[in-house]
Design a protein around this nucleic acid. Structure first.
Lengths: 341, 341
DNA sequence: GTGAAAGCGCTAACAT
DNA sequence: ATGTTAGCGCTTTCAC
């Protein structure tokens, strides 16, 4: 914004016409004579005129921008979501503002505020892990700014949601482990306030039940990042001799335990089978490759953006919140393929 | 932007004062009596008043927003850069708008335009691989919108730059391979228009020279993504028997060749040593762990943002473009540690 | 201590 | 076919 980009007024002055004529000419308004229109367009082109998006948004009360709040873009799942969102958004003439919460509640609050301040037309949100109070999202809801929750949702707020079938995913994985002959399965889960964590844990428990395996509460511990694996290494190493499988709530945690166990002489999957969740690229790179379930981040992002655009296009319609559930697919790999004895 | 968020005018009307009074009261202007100020502030708080950032930017001709254009956020190096930028930006009261070019020239052009349209105060750019024409950046330059190039720079435009010492990094790696006894080193490089690729290739050549190894032009091929590895698999497999090491221009390409070679029965590093560039997290996860050099993405992002803020703060000062070069550190890992015979 | 008015860049209803 | 005017939300100079 340094030296004043040329505005419609500048053009008007330079050409001896009114600003409205310029405005109309540039958008092919039928009232404007072809002669003037051409002259104006040519001139605008020459001076490289570009409409000021800020002024436009202010005037139209529509910014054509949607805000994205996501925990951390480093993770493949989240960046896939973003790509899905962007591709739909761009194709429909929307811009996106991406904010990272870094899994931090107060950063998330700031992000919501900043996006609202910038008058985004809508919000696409994947809630931070540490968020337990949802009042900032209620503000959005009360503003009537359309919002779609993605993956990590807030049930208290009635909005469209796009989620993974976490329950079935976890059930699928756990059943697979059981099929491989595992009976003592350690679950590395995530914080209780995260629904996805709850659902994955429930899926794990359900699979045990279906196979008449008693649930041992000691075999569920909260440990959802490589760092946490490191912090809990003693506990994990103490439990390890007594289990024959580990199901981690995400792939990078699974990889971290795998490394920990390998260092301590465990054979994977011979001694302990390991499974993750999400099918991150590292899952196929580790040795042995990691069994996991595929989550369709890209498609989820697309779907969420489509839902949002729907709301934006029909603000008066008050249809019930939609919930799109994405199924997952089991990716069996070497890390769980025990030779049946 | 649905039901009209409450504005300063609304508050003014509701309280029977003028808009200017409200404006002043809210920003603690000394002219306003404490009584009115408190009343107004209390009311604003109650109705959850938030200034419209769009109107503010329009008025002030400063958006406090900076634009980031980056090839692909999925890559750890790039998302580290973003985190570095964000942390500095937030602490100084700036917002960021992140755009992905997806390594696509025309997307990059669109991004530049969109950010300019939104009147960002400055731009932080990591150029797309496929960009050979830089006129869109020259437009920015002519606009006098401050811009800092990061990692992938454009020499034709005189701006601040923050780069990696690619030449020395590649030289370091290549020398290390030579020390390990390798003499026939295949280099998987990137497109010729990319300076970083050129520099890494030059570093590779320099190391050969320093060790009196003749450069074999057949041992340089352009192959800079896992997909390209797949496309060039035949050529790579044909060359493989005749080399004792491979130096890839980035880690994910290195990992891809490593997998290809492992599948075809090669021992790493026994038959062929492999090294990458960047120290992506996958480098320490693959088996064997990958030798590479560490690039300080986070710090580079911080530095770039600081340079930009400097320019923004002193628009009149016309000091010469600064170039910050970040050194790299060799990370020797198993993938190159040949037993010396 | 407070208000009126102008203007940032743009558009649209209302003239002419 | 074109111009005038008002206004989107906000700040700031100038009055009083």
């Amino acid at each position: 914004m340094k030296p004043h980009l040329t505005s419609i007024n500048d053009i008007a002055k330079a050409m001896g016409v009114s600003a409205s004529t310029v405005s109309r000419a540039l958008k092919d308004h039928p009232d404007i004579s072809e002669a003037t229109r051409n002259k104006i367009k040519a001139f605008a082109q020459k001076v490289n005129y570009r409409p000021n998006a800020l002024a436009l948004s202010l005037k139209k009360q529509v910014s054509n921008t949607i805000g994205i709040i996501i925990p951390e873009i480093v993770h493949h799942f989240f960046s896939s979501i973003i790509s899905g969102i962007e591709d739909i958004a761009y194709s429909k003439g929307y811009r996106v503002m991406i904010c990272q919460s870094n899994e931090d509640y107060s950063r998330e609050e700031m992000n919501v505020q900043a996006l609202l301040d910038h008058r985004v037309d809508g919000l696409l949100v994947c809630i931070s892990k540490t968020t337990e109070d949802f009042s900032h999202f209620k503000t959005v809801y009360n503003n009537q700014t359309p919002m779609v929750f993605l993956d990590r949702v807030c049930k208290e707020i009635e909005t469209d949601r796009v989620i993974t079938d976490d329950f079935n995913g976890a059930r699928l994985i756990t059943s697979h482990l059981i099929e491989m002959g595992c009976k003592k399965i350690l679950h590395l889960g995530t914080l209780p306030q995260l629904l996805i964590g709850q659902d994955r844990q429930d899926g794990y428990i359900q699979a045990l039940k279906e196979n008449n395996i008693d649930l041992d509460p000691e075999l569920i511990i909260i440990c959802d990042t490589p760092r946490k694996v490191d912090e809990n290494r003693d506990e994990i190493l103490e439990i390890a001799p007594h289990v024959d499988a580990i199901f981690a709530v995400n792939d990078f945690t699974a990889v971290a335990v795998m490394n920990l166990l390998k260092i301590h002489g465990y054979e994977i999957p011979g001694d302990i089978a390991i499974a993750g969740f999400g099918d991150d690229p590292i899952a196929s790179i580790v040795e042995p490759p990691l069994t996991t379930v595929e989550q369709q981040g890209y498609q989820m992002g697309q779907e969420a953006m489509n839902l949002l655009i729907d709301r934006l296009a029909n603000p008066e319609v008050t249809k019930k919140p939609e919930v799109k559930i994405f199924q997952v697919e089991l990716r069996k790999r070497k890390s769980t393929l025990k030779l049946q004895s």
